[in-house]
Each structure stands twice: as C-alpha cells, then as structure tokens.
C-alpha cells in the first residue's frame, strides 16, 4: 500500500507541537493556578485559598467595571449583529451587482485598519460630538464597540447564508409567501444559528477590548479590561488572577457555544 504523505511523520513534529502548546498555555495555567494562592504574591506559592475571588467579589470597583463591560458588550453586540445581518443579506441574497466586491471589502476593512487608528479617530470624532450635544454617557463606548464588532459578526452570518440555497427563498415565494413572510418563515429560522454565532463573537470581542475603550472612555467609565490595566500599574495581587480566571471561563463558555452553533450547517444541506 502506498503511504500517503502525513505531516505527523516528519521528525520532531510532536516535539514542536508539544512545545507550542506549552508556550501558549503555560502562562495561562500559571495565572489560573496563582488565582488560588493564599499569599499576596503572584509568583510565590503559599497555599490554596479562595480569598482573592472573595476580594474581587467584594471590590465595588471590579463589580462596577464588570457590569459596565457587560452593558457595553450586550448593546454593542446586538447593534453590530443587526447591521451585520442586513449587510450579509445584501451581499448574498441578491444577484451580483456592480460594486458588491467593493462593499464586501469595505465591510471587512475594520479588521485590517490598525486599532489604534480607529481609536484615535473615534476619540477626535466623539470629543466634537460631546461638545455639540453635552452628552457624556456610555453611549459613545457602545457605539464604538458596535462599529468595530460589525465585521466579526458579519463573517459567521455570511458563511451561514452562503451555505443556504437561494432556491429556498424562491420556493417560498412560489408558495405564496410575500417577501416578508419568506424571510420570517424560511430565511430567518435557517439563518438563526449564524446570527447567534455572530452575536456571541461580537460580544466576546467587545468584552475584552482595551485600546479603543481606553481612548474613547470618559473619567469613571472603566470597563473590566481597562480597570485591570490601571490596577497592574500599581500593585499586582492574585486578585487580578482571580478576575482573569473568571473572565477566561466566561469566554470559554461563549466560544464553546459558538463552536457548536457554527458546526450545524453540515447537517442542514438537505
């Protein structure tokens, strides 16, 4: 039997693979481990304890920042997903038209623009808006996050739409469904997993953004990541580790759900 090429047979493959995982995950493992340290050091193990989780839970600043983060991420993810769904429909559910590729590139451009550029641009823009309107609430952060989350939400929704046969909507129209009913009873139920996946991706991306938040936020508008950044400049205690660990768990949970949602199209190709 002819042996087909397999990268697994190259010398040193497994060694390099193990080392890569080691380098990627050792710091995270250490971080999680020291979240349970009973001492005040993040480098010297003194015994097991949950005191830092308790400390974080009782720290009003942490809770406030967390709630703010969740608020911003929720609103931003919903806004971004609505825009992304409309954009995805407009770039897949019509006959090809002039400028469609351009639009596609335009939607995804924020992924390539350096974040710092977007951050500075938003800072300048919103400082003007603040002067005009006098409003200085969380709205600016929500808008900014929604803006850079659109391409992340767009990708899974578009992928899902592309796996859906256009003749389904045509069949619905043929069976007396008005365009709105065809969307409501055929497109939307089939697209739903894609929309949820987009929503979650946008939520996670918004949740851990630092650069844009740091630029756009006003005083007292720290989100969890910017609060942690601020803390790290002063004293580093395992409290940071504890917060990070909880953060990690939430992200893992969301990513797991995302994974299962984005896997379904295979089954639906009836």
């Amino acid at each position: 039997m002819a042996k087909s090429f397999s990268i697994k047979r190259l010398p040193g493959f497994s060694t390099i693979a193990m080392m890569t995982f080691f380098v990627l995950y050792l710091p995270i493992a250490t971080l999680v481990a020291y979240a349970f340290n009973s001492g005040v050091s993040v480098a010297m193990w003194e015994g097991f304890s949950l005191r830092w989780f308790e400390a974080a839970w009782n720290n009003d600043l942490v809770i406030e920042a967390s709630v703010r983060s969740l608020k911003i991420a929720s609103v931003a993810a919903v806004l971004a997903t609505i825009c992304a769904t409309l954009a995805a429909l407009a770039t897949t559910r019509t006959a090809a038209y002039r400028g469609m590729t351009f639009k596609y590139a335009f939607i995804n451009l924020p992924l390539l623009v350096p974040e710092i550029v977007t951050a500075v641009a938003l800072l300048i823009f919103f400082s003007r808006v603040k002067v005009w309107t006098g409003y200085s609430g969380l709205g600016y952060l929500m808008m900014s996050h929604a803006a850079f989350c659109v391409p992340f939400a767009y990708l899974p929704i578009r992928a899902r739409l592309e796996s859906m046969d256009l003749s389904l909507e045509r069949a619905a129209a043929d069976l007396y469904a008005t365009p709105f009913k065809a969307f409501r009873y055929v497109t939307l139920p089939l697209l739903w997993p894609g929309i949820l996946a987009g929503l979650m991706l946008a939520f996670v991306i918004s949740l851990d953004d630092v650069v844009i938040t740091e630029f756009v936020k006003s005083g007292g508008q720290d989100t969890l990541p910017t609060y942690m950044l601020g803390q790290l400049r002063r004293v580093v205690t395992p409290e940071m580790n504890a917060i990070s660990t909880v953060f990690l768990l939430i992200s893992l949970a969301i990513v797991t759900v995302f994974f299962f949602l984005s896997r379904t199209p295979e089954k639906d190709n009836g």
Binding site: S167, A171, D174, Y176, A177, V186, L190, D268, G270
Partner: peptide
Amino acid sequence: PNQRPVNTVFQNYALFP
C-alpha cells in the same frame, strides 16, 4: 411569484430543511 396561482417543483427540490 407569490401572486401567481402557479407552483414549481424545483430541480434540487428546495425543500425547507
């Protein structure tokens, strides 16, 4: 299409999965 009393059997069936 939805206003015409005409129905189609599609080549790929286009059943709603």
